[in-house]
Design a protein around this nucleic acid. Structure first.
Lengths: 225, 225
DNA sequence: ACCTGAACACCGTTCAAGT
DNA sequence: ACCTGAACACCGTTCAAGT
């Protein structure tokens, strides 16, 4: 998979002259801002400011903000590691690949949301899709079913990363409110919720692992219509 | 409802007296704007304009935009229908409830995204959770597993609605680009994708139905760790 | 071809002043 | 307690003018 250029943005002061703009530089800067400040930090104006221009200049290299989002996402997907090997524990390798995808998204606050609102077409997404298809084939899943399964697995993993992101993302007011709403429910009207109590909020990592197993077991036992 | 009224101070008598602000009125107006214009139409300023005030006035009834999002979401969730009945085909009823949830979201462009970025705590979400727990119990799923399963099912359904929404939502450029990227892949480097061809984009409704079956089958066959 | 500043049409949120 | 206009600190995108 493509190696993401480290391209540390050296302080502009030490740089002799303004480096010319390029899509590469724009995406790198955007990713840098995203990693440090989350989605709030990723704006065309801020990217432009770091690159020492006005936002209008970026439109030569990037059609609009959506395209920049897609480019940043694909760049991050270059980090995803899909374990090699053709035999043995395909299931373990599949889960490892998806966990790698999940972590790549989760490391940039808000990027999971981008993954869920973008129709991806970059080379790294193509690469990842190919790898997942190969892994499912190793697991004996026929091609048509595997095509749908890849979609399902990526969608699920993105959504899970987005949810984790939400819960981290500061809105502790909302989280507390949700816990109270479910915790203070009347046993008569909502017996099941009442009986579960804190159980409804248990498990973080194990919940994700379980979710992946649910999906994989489900795919293996559910033929396409 | 409401074309924004001209600010001109025509005699107050010529139009119905301004109804007092309330959270109820704000949420209704917001939902109305959302249904007609999508997420782009849902802003505090626009809601205020329809209600013939300034945005600042809304802050008496609503803490911020995120809270308004949560309130609108829960209001929509009031539409979700969960089939009654305690015996017979719980699986059919579970799928019907989730499809109802999905349709409620999908009917408002962008709302699925809100569902994925909000920690819900409204009464209708509590109701839905209770109903889904009951349905899973009828299916013989033990409580702890059911708690995780409800989360998984709702997350999946929201994500699926969001994806459908993206694909409808106008960005046909991105969709075409994605189809081209996957369609023009070299058979040597990406044999699996190449072999699948258009299959990667097939099925809309049937794909969702299959996804639900995958999830349900997976839940039934995957105990909690 | 590329870059730029300014402008346009928006945002959410805060605040002092009014009632 | 509620409402308001104005202000603050932002947005993405377009465009005429420059190189």
């Amino acid at each position: 998979m493509a190696t993401p250029k480290p391209r540390q943005v050296l302080s502009r002061r030490s740089r002799p002259a303004k480096s010319p703009l390029s899509q590469e530089a724009i995406v790198s800067t955007a990713l840098d801002l995203l990693s440090r400040e989350g989605m709030a930090g990723l704006s065309l104006r801020k990217v432009a400011a770091v690159l020492d221009t006005g936002a209008a200049s970026l439109y030569v290299y990037v059609a609009n903000l959506d395209e920049l989002h897609a480019l940043v996402l694909d760049r991050v997907l270059g980090e995803v590691v899909t374990p090699a090997g053709r035999d043995g524990d395909w299931r373990y390798r599949l889960k490892a690949a998806l966990r790698s995808y999940s972590e790549a998204l989760y490391a940039r606050p808000g990027l999971a949301q981008v993954a869920l609102s973008t129709i991806p077409s970059g080379p790294n997404m193509v690469e990842l899709t190919e790898s997942l298809l190969a892994l499912l084939e190793q697991g004996g899943v026929e091609p048509g079913r595997a095509a749908w399964a890849v979609d399902l697995l990526l969608l699920h993993t993105s959504a899970f990363a987005a949810e984790r992101d939400n819960r981290r993302g500061g809105d502790e007011v909302a989280l507390r409110r949700a816990q109270e709403a479910l915790g203070s429910v009347s046993p008569d009207e909502h017996p099941h919720i009442h009986a579960l109590g804190a159980e409804l909020f248990s498990g973080e990592q194990s919940r994700y692992d379980w979710g992946l197993d649910v999906l994989i077991n489900g795919v293996l036992s559910t033929p396409r219509p």
